[in-house]
Amino acid sequence: METIIEALVALFLLIGAAFALVGSIGLAKLPDFFMRLHGPTKATTLGVGGMIVGSVLYFSTRGEGLSLHELLITLFLLITAPVSAHMLAKAALHLRLRTVERTRGEGTLPRGDVK
């Protein structure tokens, strides 16, 4: 039993770390700002999520009762990540950052009423 849980914790930690790394690779390698925005908002939240699940499992099976307070961090990140991504995208649209030429569609809203 102990070893199964230990293996699960190890698995979740590795998954979390791998997703965080993939998100950061996306941040470093993708060619324009709007594409870079995708990596951190998704992959990193799942990266932290994986770590947190591992941590919950680890601390809950030490015999000191359930430990769920790490879930607060994931909850908080899930709520805040879209907000900060939205604010950054808005700022980037406002500053008219370059996009890759093959980006289709206009970076402005109809009637130009960008708020």
């Binding site: 950061s24 990193t44 939240t45 932290v48 770590m51 990140l77 950054l88």
Partner: peptide, 17 residues
């Protein structure tokens, strides 16, 4: 600047992990 802010944002999330 938005790139740098985004990078700092990712930096703190990774440091939480």
């Amino acid at each position: 600047l938005p790139d740098r802010i985004l990078a700092l944002d990712t930096l703190y999330i990774n440091s939480i992990a």
